[in-house]
């Protein structure tokens, strides 16, 4: 059973407290949204959950064991992170880049085999980049690079997806297509998805749980239906918010 447990998690950056004794259990089959103003610590929280930084105090348990007990490779087999920005210092093709997602599943002395290639092509097809496999990855547009990064992550096939602004650079159609893709993984394969987003209405539509990072270490977390209210959002962004009824449920608009 996929499970990520935060016990009294405290994260500091310099003198700022980003999260203060956050306790929460996140389980497979759930999709969590992380909302917060700029600099509230959404990215830092995701990176800490991925074990890239040590937390300041508290414990993170992945499937019941502390994350420190896993090797990098074991972590990468279970947990994958979509970064906010993508870079590559030397030109690689789209196919070479997406193949890198298989890295944690291949022993260091072996090369990618036919099965890895098949999985990679299927990941490219899922994001609609299969026709571009021989293009140089650095020559893609911003949105295409974002989809390539998403394909690489799908190819990594972890149990837990941590997504830092997955809708970045994507046009409206692609935003829905990509988020539908992750929603299907959560529903059909019982995966856990945690995504930091700026679009409250995407969170409302796709996430059944939310963490609101209010700043100074304060946070509210729980079911979307209970936590995502105009009142809480007004406090979160420091800007008055209204709620109106939309086709998929409530819609939040700034006043």
């Amino acid at each position: 059973m996929t499970e990520l447990t935060l016990q009294a998690l405290t994260i500091r950056r310099g003198t700022r407290v980003l999260s203060h004794e956050l306790t929460q259990t996140l389980q497979g089959g759930e999709c969590w949204g992380v909302l917060g103003a700029n600099g509230a610590g959404k990215t830092t929280l995701l990176h800490t959950l991925a074990g890239l930084y040590p937390d300041d105090s508290g414990t993170i348990l992945l499937n019941g064991s502390t994350v420190e007990g896993y090797s990098r490779r074991q972590m990468a087999q279970r947990l994958g992170l979509l970064f906010q920005s993508h870079e590559s210092s030397f030109p690689a093709t789209v196919l070479e880049t997406v193949l890198q997602g298989r890295h944690p599943h291949i022993p260091s002395w072996k090369w990618e085999d036919a099965d890895d290639l098949k999985k990679s092509l299927s990941a490219l097809r899922q994001v609609g980049l299969d026709a571009m496999q021989n293009r140089s990855a650095t020559k893609l547009s911003g949105g295409e690079q974002q989809r390539l990064a998403i394909a690489t992550l799908l190819n990594q096939a972890p149990e837990i997806y941590l997504l830092d602004e997955p809708s970045n650079h994507l046009d409206l159609h692609q935003q829905i297509k990509i988020l539908d893709l992750f929603a299907a993984q959560v529903k059909e394969q019982n995966k856990l998805c945690v995504m930091a987003l700026h679009d409250v209405n995407l969170v409302q539509r796709y996430c059944d749980h939310v963490i609101l990072m209010l700043g100074e270490g304060n946070s509210i977390s729980g079911k979307t239906s209970e936590v995502l209210t105009a009142e809480n959002l007004t406090r979160l962004y420091g800007h008055p918010m209204l709620v109106v009824e939309g086709p998929h449920g409530p819609l939040f608009v700034p006043r």
Binding site: L52, A76, Q77, G80, L81, E87, A92, H103, P104, S108
Partner: peptide, 24 residues
Amino acid sequence: ALPMGRSLNILSRGELQAQSLGVE
């Protein structure tokens, strides 16, 4: 170079990116 090569390729994505793909 042969066993190290794939990790070197991934390092060009950035340090944290490489780490999240399982590279020490």
